[in-house]
Structures are given as structure tokens and as C-alpha cells.
Amino acid sequence: MSHGHGDNPYLGHHWDNMEQQFSSAKLGMWLFMAQEILFFSGLFCFYAVLRFNNPEAFEYGHQLLDKIMGAVNTIVLLLSSLTMALGVRAAQTNQKRATCIFLALTFLGGCGFMVIKGIEYNAKGTHGSLWGLANFKGEDGVQKVGFDYGKAFSTDLAPEPPAERAAKPEVASDAETAAIEPGGMVAEALDQKEVRSILFGEALPPPGKHGGHEEDEHAGDDGHDHGHAGHVEQWGTPPPTAHIFFSVYFGLTALHGIHVVVGMGLIAWVFVNARRGKYSSKYFTQVEVVGLYWHLVDLIWIFLFPLLYLIS
């Protein structure tokens, strides 16, 4: 019974016929995609919760993303999905040459997507709009907001305007600690109320004054300040939690990017097989399954694009 269908070398010994094998492979792939969707759903939930908790970060952050690039990428990926579908169709209809061409085009689409993504990442890198508190510098490259728990009580968290400062003798008397950090990091003693305001994000000093103060402190330190006023005008001042948006942005797009790379690897693999003439109307499971995966990658991007780039 097991080898009653020996006419097709691709039939596994435990299947009754090709049809059963093909439908099983497809069911398996759908299940795998279900888990992929769940995997990204987890990320989308993070997105939702963090956006709900930090609306201003998302409001601010999304302006810094390049919508044109995002849109171009969306089109590139959609087109590659189309060529993938055509490739599967070609494999089913015994068109070896067409299969190879379409698979190659799809692969190029993936490349194009990654290159554009790379340009975007690079731009973010040079502007200092990176993930996490330590890396996020705002568009002018000067780190000016946020706090690190371990240092929450000691670093220059939320410097007060000089006038208020002078009014507080306790803080002013701390000049000795300034010597510890020649880089301008003034260690300050904060009273409980200030600490709470830091820990719980309540009533931080107005960001406008805040930026101005930075400029005083760092004047001449580096060249970043030149564009600062312009950036603030264009996008407003970064809220204290702006880095969270970029954490989410990089987290989501990087994981999606990894999936694109894996997909490209798979496409390369079926391309090689296709060139060897492995696929025909009798056996095209691998092309079909890889195609499903590629559509999924595309679909996830369709969700990511509006969620990250097109927030209103």
C-alpha cells in the first residue's frame, strides 16, 4: 500500500496519495501561520497598551517616520506578493521559466524592501531617534528627557529653570557635586515630591523651558544645537516617553524584517529547486507553502504601516 503510488517520487511513505500529502502540507502551513499571527498579535497588544499609556509619545514619534518611504515599501511588498502569486500559478501550470522569473522578481522585491528599510533605519540612527531611553536623543541629537531608575536621584533629570533653582538654597548648595561630573551632569538632591513626579510622570517641568535650559548648558559643546529650534518648530518638543514609540517601532519592524529575510531565504531555496525542474502540476507544494508564508509577511506589513506611520 505504501508504495502503491510510486509514480511520484515526492510522495512520502506514510501518505496514501499526493492529494492527501498536499492538503496536509497546506493545513500545516496555515497552522504555522496562525502561530505567526499570534506571535505578532502579541506585539500588536504591546503596541496597543503602550500607545494607550503614552499617547503623546506615539503622537510625537510617528511624525519623525518617513511616510513616503513607508508607502513605497508597502507598494514594493504588495508587488512582490503579486509576483509570488504569479510564480505559484506558473509552477502549477508547468511553466518552469516563468516560475523562475517570478520567483526572482519576488526575491528582488524583498531586497528592495530591506534596502529601503535600511535607509530609514540609517536616517533614524543619524538623527538619534533610536529605541530606549539611553539611545533616544530626539531629532537634534541631544538627550534631554527621561530618567534611569538607578540614576533617578542623581542625574540631570529635569533641570529647573535657573530662577527657580536660585530660590532653593538646598539645591543650590550642591555645587560640590557638580565637580563629580565635569560633563555638565549636575547631581541634584531631589525631595520626595520631585522624585514622585519623576517616577510617576506627574507634572514634569514644561518641556519648552527645559529645552532652553539644555541649550544654555551645552552651548558650544557640540553642533547639534543648530537645528534644534527648527526641529521643535516642525515636530514639537519630544515628550518624556518619546523613546517608547521608537522602541515599539524598532521592535515591530525589526521582527518583521527578520521574517522578510527568512522569506527571501525560502524563496531562494525554491528558486534553486525550480531551476532544477522539481516543480510541476504534480508537485508544487513547496512553492505553494513558501507563497503562503510570503503573503503573510506582506499582510503583517499592511498592518504595521498604518499603525506606525499613519497615526492621527
Binding site: 503602550l50 529605541w131 533617578a152 523613546h243 522602541s247
Partner: peptide
């Protein structure tokens, strides 16, 4: 990378 998703010190939950 210190993303700040779970770490309250970085604004996480």
C-alpha cells in the same frame, strides 16, 4: 537594548 517596555525606570509597565 533598554527598550522601556517592562522596566518602570524607562517608562515601561
Amino acid at each position: 537594548f533598554g527598550l522601556g517596555l517592562f522596566d518602570p525606570a524607562l517608562g515601561g509597565d
